[in-house]
Design a protein around this nucleic acid. Structure first.
Length: 220
DNA sequence: CCAGACGTTGTT
DNA sequence: GTCTGG
DNA sequence: CCAGACGTTGTT
DNA sequence: GTCTGG
């Protein structure tokens, strides 16, 4: 997430802009910016939530490690996601995303971004969790996935659901929903939209950050 | 009735 | 919270 | 998603 | 192998 605050505000029609630090290695379980409908339901607001959706009924947050993604084909029916699918949708802004190739221990990451350089918006769901005796309350989100298109297929058979600016309201406003129209919103992006570039395997550790991670490893 | 699950990805 | 399994 | 830990006893 | 941490 390296999108400049003013670009983010303009793209998502946010009132006011906040100072977000650039993130080149934003991993599951970390806090990330998301766009939600504001309290009135009319406008949009930027929020910070933790990646890995904890359902409201969860006893602890362990499930979050397995709810970083939700299959768009089934999320409306799954106990962990259906409530959020009905009432709490969000858009997750991203400059790009990563997929890995190769064996455990020698995984090579690829950056996947729009060929035209514009930011991406993932379809997401969010939820509030009350916390427990040992854990504080949290607000968290998940990213919906669909079949990979031809651009991404060489690396992986799934990819995030990408929403176009003209469809932002259609995704965020479930009350105007027609199930078929919603399904189409979550279809794989058209082939040719995205390009792939190899980046540094230092990305594989969340300890590493910064623009230097975008340069592939050299052979030394 | 109560108990137990509730998830995705990747790898085998 | 809500569904499934027993 | 990937990386890294995974354990106890005894000693400082 | 499986869980935790980030």
């Amino acid at each position: 997430m390296t999108v400049a605050p003013d670009v983010l505000a303009a793209l998502f029609n946010l009132s006011g802009s906040s100072d977000l630090a650039e993130r080149f290695n934003l991993a599951p379980s970390q806090e990330a910016p998301v766009i939600v409908r504001d309290e009135t339901g009319e406008g949009r607001a930027l929020a910070t939530m933790r990646w890995g959706l904890v359902p409201s009924w969860a006893r602890d947050s362990k499930i979050a490690h397995r709810t970083i993604n939700a299959r768009s084909e089934t999320a409306a029916e799954k106990p962990s996601f259906r409530s959020a699918f009905k009432r709490r949708r969000c858009l997750v802004p991203a400059s790009w995303f990563y997929e890995w190739q190769g064996e455990a221990g020698t995984k090579v990451p690829y950056r996947i971004q729009r060929a035209d350089g514009r930011p991406l918006a993932f379809a997401g769901l969010w939820e509030r969790w009350k916390g427990s005796a040992t854990e504080p309350a949290r607000t968290s989100f998940t990213v919906l996935t669909t079949s990979a298109n031809d651009d991404v297929a060489p690396l992986h058979d799934r990819m995030p659901c990408l929403i176009e600016p003209g469809d932002f309201d259609r995704w965020l406003t479930p009350e105007v929903e027609d199930p078929d129209a919603t399904r189409r919103l979550l279809d794989p992006a058209p082939a040719g939209l995205l390009t792939l570039d190899r980046v540094s395997s230092r990305l594989n550790s969340v300890r590493n950050e910064g623009p230097g991670l975008m340069t592939p490893d050299t052979l030394f």
